Every structure is written in structure tokens, then in C-alpha cells.
Amino acid sequence: MPIVNRVADLQPDIQAWRRDLHAHPEVLYEVHRTAAFVAERLREFGCDEVATGLGKTGVVGVIKGRKPAGGDVKVIGLRADMDALPIEEQTGLPYASKTPGQMHACGHDGHTAMLLGAARYLAETRNFAGQAVVVFQPAEEGGAGAAAMIKDGLMERFAIDQIYGMHNGPGMPIGSFAIRTGPIMAATDSIDINIEGIGGHAARPHKSLDSVLVGAELITALQQIVSRNVDPLDAAVISMCEFHAGNARNVIPQTAVLRGTVRTLTAEVRELVEKRVRAVVAGVAQMTGAKIDLTYERGYPVTNNHAVQTQFATRVAKEIAGDTNVHEMPPLMGAEDFAYMLEKRPGAFIFCGNGDSAGLHHPAYNFSDEAIVFGTSYWIKLVENTLPA
């Protein structure tokens, strides 16, 4: 594994970048320090072009190979996300977040650092034809930064033919990868429900229209959609996670608010679930007499890996990790806005082992520096195999 060995020499620098980013987390589109850090490194590496401000704060670097590309694929895109989460860190690390209420609890610091490491290597060696485009994206955590960069012309401006993404995987052994063809992560939609009944004294419920009871009816009915309307062989999740009503034990509240999330893996099931949610809300409103306002918003689409590119990514991962350390995984019901990029160009999304760490979005999570060599090597090999010199 010559690339792995050579990347090991870069590991101390990549680790230092990662820990600096970890100590200075930024959320959503407000990744100004992070973007400036990335752009400065890319210029130091000698990238042929460094563009900033795509999707508000995204950064793109272009690295040209030794020869013009001669095949169907002339430009390959590699994407890393830069944003952190609004979570108070509880790791106790010497490089823990210095920003109260924000932390890199999903490993985007590691993703950014690994892609920077790959960019440095590729800019030094240029052992490929065509162009490698490294894409550093803001606002993956709920802000749809991928869609914003696409809207700003990412694919067309840099003539990207294929696009690849990677995420760390807690619980997966260091040095392993997991991937699958087709849906690998779910679409995510949001449900917001406002209920208005008639408030009153708790001892006189017959003179009121109880918004709490209406909310309970809704939750019970909504949770039955998956079990009684969705084919058992398909996957879907409806989770109602917020219920706000009342502030006194002897007052029936006038209003109640429910909020929840929907996760699906196919367009057909997504349509079905939305249709049933709307019907259930309308039915409960008619049954109870309460006024119920529903806001159903589509979020990230399904992250759908393309077959040819997934097979290729699997072969590359096996070159880095060995055949027995690359696994076909079941789909996850979490969401990922790299889905927008896969709607525009063929490509694949892969998971790289993070070892026995706390889970993603947990205040004790930390990206494992031991994963750096494997993730960085995967990026490099992906370029060199896609665009052979």
C-alpha cells in the first residue's frame, strides 16, 4: 500500500489541521474562519485555481494532472463538509472547542482535514490526467449547503463529470469502509403542526376543546402510517419528537404544537407518507373540531449511489483497506445533503471507519486521527484510478 505509507508521512500535518479546526468550530454558513483556513492551505499547496464564496462560504480547489484527460471522465469532484453543530462539547480534550455551544460532533473537521491532505498530495505529485476538483462545503447540518453550491454553478463552472463523498462511521473499525449501491441514506422531511382548541378549567373539560387530547390523537394516528400504510418490505420512519402545550396543571391549554421528522428511501414511499400525513391531520381536525394547521416541508432527498461509480469506489477502497475490510452496508435512515450532488452527477458516498468512538452528534464524540491515513489515501487513489496518467 505505497500511497498509505506515503500519506502516513503527511499524517502529523493533517492531524494538526484537524485539531485546529476542531478547536474553532463554526456552524451552517458561518464557516468564515474555516473557509479562510482551507483556501490558504490550497494556495500553499499550489492548486491551479482556488475559488471562494460558492454557496456563500464554500471553497473549491482545482488541481490539474500531468496530462489532459483522454477518457469519458475528465474532471472528478471530491467533497468534504466544513460545518459544526450547536452542541456543547464534553470531551475534555486539550483541543476541545473554544466556542461555547458549538462543536465538531459529526467529524466534519476530519473530513475537511483529510481532503486537504489529499489536495496537498495531488498537487505535489500530479500523477493523474485531467483535473481533480476538491469541494469544501458549508451548511451540511440542515442548511443544504450542497444545494447552495450547485445553485452557484459548481458543476458547470468546474465541468465536474463525477462526484464523490465520504463520511466517518463510529463503530466501524479503523481501516474499514462501507458502501452500497442505490439508497444509502434517507430523504428527510419535517412536520410542524399547530393545534387550536378551546382552553378552560381542568375541572370542566366538557366546556373546552382539549388541544392536548387532539395532539395525542394525532401522534397515535401518525405513528400508525408506517405500520399500516407502508409496505413492510419498504423503509420509512415517522418520529414526532416535540409536543408543547400548557403551563399549569389545572388549565386545559388553548393551543398545542407538534414537531416531527419523516425519513424515507424511495420517491414512491416519500409521496405516500406525505399524502397520508395530510389526510390524517385533516381527519383528526374533522373528528375533533379543532383547528389544525400543518406545515409539511421537503428536506434533503435520498442519497442515491450510482451503480458504476459505487463499484469503482468499492474497488478503490479495497486497494486501500483490503478485500475483507470493505463491506456492503444496509441503508441508514439519517440524511445527507450530498444527495443533491448525486442528483446532478454520477458518483458515490462511502463510510470510513472511526473506531469505537461516541456516536455522531453526541457531545463526547471525537473524530479519530487514526482514520486519517485511510480516508486521505482513498481520496488520492480515487483520483489516480479515475484519471490515470
Rank of each mutant, 00 (worst) to 15 (best):
I14M: 05
V277I: 05
E141F: 02
H104L: 03
R18Y: 06
D20P: 07
N5H: 13
D356P: 12
H244W: 14
A8M: 07
V277L: 02
P253G: 14
F45S: 07
N250G: 13
A113H: 10
A267V: 04
P205I: 15
D356H: 13
P68A: 03
G322F: 01
M1Y: 12
D337N: 00
V280K: 02
D13I: 12
A36N: 09
D109C: 07
I191A: 00
V27C: 10
V281I: 11
E268S: 03
A202F: 07
E140P: 09
L10N: 09
G375E: 12
R263V: 05
T314R: 12
A23N: 02
M114V: 09
T220Q: 06
K98P: 11
A16E: 01
Q254D: 15
T220D: 04
T99Q: 04
G169R: 15
A321Y: 03
N127K: 14
S211A: 14
R33L: 10
V4D: 10
G101L: 05
Q311C: 00
G215K: 08
K344G: 11
Y164E: 00
G169K: 14
A307M: 00
D356F: 13
P68R: 08
L213I: 15
A8Y: 08
A235I: 09
Q254E: 15
K74Q: 13
T125D: 13
A36I: 02
D20R: 10
V135N: 11
A358D: 11
T57P: 01
Y95E: 15
A317M: 02
K56N: 01
I350W: 06
G175Y: 00
L28V: 06
A389L: 13
K291E: 15
I198N: 07
I198T: 09
T386C: 09
V230A: 08
V4W: 09
D337C: 01
A236Y: 04
L116K: 14
E156H: 09
A51K: 12
S357K: 12
M149P: 06
A146P: 07
D231F: 06
A119I: 04
A23E: 08
H201V: 14
S208D: 13
R228I: 08
L154I: 01
D293I: 05
D210Q: 12
F367G: 08
F136W: 05
G61H: 03
A335P: 06
P68E: 00
P12W: 01
P205L: 13
M329S: 05
L115S: 07
F367M: 02
L85S: 07
I3Q: 12
I320H: 02
A202G: 15
A147I: 01
Y121F: 11
L42K: 08
G61D: 02
